[in-house]
Write a protein that binds this DNA or RNA. Structure first.
Length: 574
RNA sequence: CGGGGCGUAGCGCAGCCUGGUAGCGCGCUUGCUUUGGGAGCAAGAUGUCGCAGGUUCAAAUCCUGCCGCCCCGACCA
């Protein structure tokens, strides 16, 4: 491609509404333009990168036994009513009506469509397993799109669905996808980590997120410094502590203390001159239609996902002030375990606590020297908190570390949730009709590109890995008015193109400085600079964007040099 | 949905408080000079001042309503 003919509007200024580096650079490098909140157009340079990532995905999905399909973006409401999600998906599902007033949605995901297809086409175990995937534009009406291409409403996604005859088969399918994903993200030149994730409302089974490590990531993760345990913060388990022997003689007598207007853990801690670890926090939740009190040590945070999973409820939220008053007989801020009119569950952090402080369920009072068992009953202890810096690995007890990441992929073992709801059955060897066991596997294509930029940039711009760079090589004749220079550049451009190298020729009538700045910004991995002085010696310069290394190569050798350099680096995911 | 901010040329912004009919930098066009890290000089083009009402002789500026965008939070995959 000739730069002079390409729509490649680079910009010097950072657009004011771009927060994260990948968004800024994608705008400045002329890769994307925003049409509306969370809705973007891809310009030629940006789309080339998207296609590169898609191609890697296709190759690896095919290699793992996937078959590519293309499913409708617009889906009839009936399917979603059948799966039950028309009701539960909420406002994120963009719904619309056609001229006959029939209801549709724009697919945020395709479990319904694929399950419908498969139930009609698959009758016997002989046709299983099967894995179908597509690369499609999805729409999720996010409450708050942000970070440019990272959290969009409209976005390109690869989604795959596996159907197996039994659980063991489904686990094998899952494992294959897990491995394919690892290869895909490695080939994209990303530093990433698969972490255990919550399988949440989709039900049972298990799930992994692929997180690209980046400080700007929206997801927190924790990983073990010794074994290979890694999980996102929602999921990360906290081990049950060993119970110390209870010697009831240690128990001190209860003591009610006047604590006017003292409500938060910090206030109580300061007022009574105790540490936050000596206090028990009592949180009142409304879970579906019931109310439950949850106790946790003062310095810890509740993990609502864990709580929701533990309770097995559909909705969970902190109780309203009215309910708090009803259950505790006091305004917010003085709840405690003693005398509360609801069931009580407690986080493991309470197990070895003695003589702690709690709210008194009475306005302006707290109680000292509370003890579980002696003073009140707890229905159950469970892992209900967010893992913290002082915790250790739940598997091997080694120290853990925290990091942030961008979720670029998610693999999910679905089980039979959809096949049951939509009656996707097959006839097994034993002549019995059974539900197919499903898995689903997503990759955010645009997000993968953004994540790559987050990991590969410097003050001058993007630094593409060879594997997904929009072009491998940029030829920069320093002055196109020098006809000899230009014609030699064009010759090199033609020859490299013929040998399968993707080349961009900067044939613009611009000053060298402008070309260099744009070259660094758009991040092409190799730049061949052709200037009159070096060319008089029969040489050109080859500069590697990533390392900054500059090699002077004789003009008649540069073609071979570049071909070899590109091939070597594409193969090694550099 | 709650809180905050912004909307003026393609991009980044000033002007608004104190009304008088719009400006700066970059970019763009033309010419000359320059030519290895975002050139210099000269001459130019480009605006429903987000939209709709209102106040006023007069509104980018004051008032009301709406829309859009961004940030924080809550929510959700």
């Amino acid at each position: 491609m000739r730069y002079s003919e390409m729509l490649l509007p680079t910009g010097r200024e950072t657009p004011s509404d771009a927060e994260v580096i990948s968004h800024q650079l994608m705008l400045r490098a002329g890769m994307i333009r925003k049409l509306s909140s969370g809705i973007y157009s891809y310009l030629p340079l940006g789309y080339r990168v998207i296609k590169k990532v898609e191609q890697i995905i296709r190759e690896e999905m095919d290699r793992a036994g996937g078959q590519e399909v293309f499913l409708p973006a617009v889906q009839p409401a009936e399917l979603w009513i059948e799966s039950g999600r028309w009701q539960f998906y909420g406002k994120e599902l963009l719904r619309l009506k056609d001229r006959h007033n029939r209801e549709y949605c724009i697919g945020p995901t395709h479990e319904e469509v694929i399950t419908d297809l498969i139930r009609n086409e698959i009758q016997t175990y002989r046709q299983l397993p099967i894995n179908l995937y597509q690369i499609q534009t999805k729409f999720r009406d996010e409450i708050r799109p942000r970070f440019g291409i990272m959290r969009c409403r409209e976005f390109g996604m690869k989604d795959a669905y596996s159907f197996d005859a039994d659980d063991a088969g489904a686990e094998l399918s899952y494992k294959k996808m897990f491995e394919a994903y690892s290869r895909i993200f490695s080939r994209c030149g990303l530093s990433f980590r698969p972490v255990e994730a919550d399988s949440g409302s989709i039900g049972g089974s298990f799930s992994h997120e692929f997180l690209v490590t980046a400080d700007s990531g929206e997801d927190g993760m924790v990983y073990c410094t010794s074994c290979d345990y890694a999980a996102n913060l929602e999921k990360a388990e906290v081990a049950r502590p060993e119970e110390r022997h209870i010697d009831e003689s240690e128990f001190l007598p209860l003591e009610e203390i006047y604590t006017p207007g003292v409500r938060t853990i910090e206030e109580v801690s300061a007022f009574l001159d105790v540490t936050t670890q000596d206090i028990v926090k009592t949180l009142i939740f409304s879970a579906d239609d019931s109310t439950i009190a949850v106790l946790i040590r003062g310095n810890e945070e509740i993990n609502e996902i864990k709580l929701k999973n533990y309770l097995g409820c559909d909705s969970l939220e902190l109780a309203t002030d009215d309910i708090v008053h009803e259950v505790t007989g006091a305004p917010k801020g003085f709840a405690g375990g003693i005398g509360i009119k609801s069931e009580i569950i407690a986080d493991y952090s309470l197990i070895n606590m003695r003589n702690f402080v709690m709210g008194a369920n009475k306005k302006d009072y707290h109680i000292k020297n509370c003890n579980t068992g002696r003073d009140f009953k707890i229905r159950d202890f469970a892992d209900l908190r967010i893992i913290g810096v002082t915790d250790t690995c739940p598997r091997c007890k080694s120290p853990i570390k925290f990091a942030r990441g961008i979720e670029v992929g998610h693999v999910f073992k679905l089980g039979t949730k959809y096949s049951k709801a939509m009656k996707a059955t097959f006839l097994d060897k034993d002549g019995k009709e059974k539900y197919m066991v499903m898995g689903c596997y997503g990759i955010g294509v645009g997000r993968t590109v953004a994540a790559c930029i987050e990991q590969n940039n410097d003050e001058d711009g993007i630094i593409w890995p060879f594997s997904i760079a929009p072009y491998h090589v940029l030829i920069t004749p320093v002055n196109i008015r020098n006809e000899e220079l230009l014609s030699m550049a064009e010759k090199l451009y033609d020859n490299l193109g013929r040998r399968g190298i993707e080349v961009l020729l900067d044939d613009r009538d611009e000053r060298a400085g402008v070309k260099f700045k744009d070259a660094d910004l758009i991040g092409i991995p190799l730049r061949i600079t052709m200037g009159p002085k070096k060319l008089a010696e029969g040489k050109v310069e080859v500069k590697f964007r990533k390392s900054g290394e500059v090699r002077e190569i004789p003009f008649d050798e540069v073609e071979d040099f570049v071909v070899q350099a590109v091939e070597k680096r594409v193969m090694s995911n550099e």
